[in-house]
C-alpha cells in the first residue's frame, strides 16, 4: 500500500504513521476488511428470511384452524425459550446430518449403517460443506430464530390494524383471504416497524456468531491478526494485540447500530405519512 502513496503524503504524516498505515493495509488486513461481506450477507440474507418466517409464523398464530395455531405458537415459544446460539449451532449441523442420513441410506452397506457412534457411516455419505454453504445455512438459522421474534411483532401489529378498515374491505365483497393479504398485511407494516427494527438489531448483533461455524468472518480474522505473532527468522513481530482488534469490532458494531437506527427512523417517518399515530 505504502508504495502507491505519493512521497509528499508520507512526509506529511511522518515515517512512523506511514509505517502504521502500511501495516494496517497489508494483505492480511485487507482480507479482514473484505471479510465484512460475510457479516453483511448474513445480516441482509437473514433479514429477508426473518420477514418470510415472521409472516409465516404470524399467519400460523392467527389461523383459526387450531393445528396451524398450535404449530405457530409452539414455534415461537420454543425459539423464545432456547438461547439463540444453541439453535444457531444446532440447525446447520442437524441439516447436514439429515442430508447425510439420506445419502448414507443409498450409498452405504447394511453393515456400515448398523455401526453405532460413527458418523457418517461411510465416506461416500460425507457431505463436505464449503464456507459459502455454511453461510447460507447460517442465514436460514437466523431466519428461523429471529423469524419467531418477528412473528410475534407482526402478530401484534396485525391486531393493531383498525378493525373498521378490514370490515369496510369485507363489505366491499373481498374474500377473507383478500382482506388478509391486501389490507391487513399491507397496513400492518407501520405498526410492526418499531418492533422489526428491534429484531434487526438483534440479528445484526447475532452475526458475530458466524465464526462458530468456521466462517472466516471479521471476528475470526480479528483473532488471527491480533494473536501474538512470532516468526523464527524475525523474532516476535508484535505481542498480544487482540484487544485492539476486538475494540475495533466493538466500535464497528456500535456504528452499525447507529446507522440502522437512523435508517429506521427515516423509514418510520416515511411509512407513517398521513397516519394518525398515538405517539404523534
Amino acid at each position: 500500500m505504502i508504495e502507491f502513496l505519493p512521497q509528499w503524503f508520507i512526509s506529511l504524516i511522518g515515517e512512523n504513521w506511514a509505517e502504521k498505515l502500511d501495516y494496517i493495509t497489508n494483505g492480511k488486513h485487507l482480507l479482514w476488511y473484505a471479510s465484512i461481506r460475510f457479516t453483511l450477507i448474513a445480516a441482509f440474507g437473514g433479514a429477508l428470511l426473518v420477514v418470510f418466517f415472521g409472516l409465516l409464523g404470524a399467519s400460523l398464530k392467527q389461523s383459526r384452524f387450531w393445528p396451524f395455531k398450535l404449530v405457530g405458537d409452539t414455534y415461537t415459544t420454543i425459539v423464545r425459550g432456547v438461547p439463540d446460539v444453541l439453535f444457531f449451532l444446532f440447525f446447520p449441523l442437524a441439516f447436514e446430518q439429515t442430508v447425510e442420513y439420506f445419502s448414507a441410506r443409498s450409498h452405504c452397506t447394511a453393515e456400515e449403517l448398523a455401526q453405532v457412534g460413527v458418523w457418517p457411516p461411510c465416506d461416500a455419505a460425507q457431505w463436505y460443506l464449503t464456507q459459502n454453504e455454511y453461510l447460507l445455512l447460517a442465514c436460514v438459522s437466523f431466519g428461523i430464530i429471529y423469524g419467531a421474534f418477528a412473528a410475534n411483532v407482526i402478530h401484534g401489529a396485525m391486531a393493531a390494524v383498525p378493525k373498521g378498515q378490514l370490515e369496510a374491505a369485507a363489505s366491499y365483497g373481498f374474500s377473507s383471504r383478500q382482506v388478509y393479504w391486501r389490507f391487513q398485511v399491507r397496513q400492518m407494516w407501520v405498526y410492526a416497524l418499531p418492533g422489526l427494527s428491534n429484531v434487526w438489531m438483534l440479528l445484526l448483533k447475532a452475526t458475530s456468531f458466524l465464526s462458530l461455524l468456521q466462517i472466516a468472518d471479521i471476528v475470526l480474522w480479528a483473532e488471527r491478526l491480533g494473536a501474538p505473532n512470532y516468526f523464527a527468522r524475525v523474532g516476535p513481530v508484535h505481542p498480544d494485540w487482540r484487544w485492539k482488534y476486538y475494540l475495533v469490532l466493538f466500535l464497528f458494531y456500535i456504528l452499525m447500530t447507529m446507522l440502522s437506527e437512523r435508517f429506521f427512523e427515516r423509514l418510520q417517518a416515511k411509512a407513517s405519512r398521513g397516519m394518525q399515530l398515538a405517539n404523534d
Partner: peptide
C-alpha cells in the same frame, strides 16, 4: 449496541 460475544472477547 454491540454483541455480547464481542464484549466477552474484548
Amino acid at each position: 449496541g454491540s454483541p455480547l460475544f464481542i464484549q466477552f472477547f474484548m
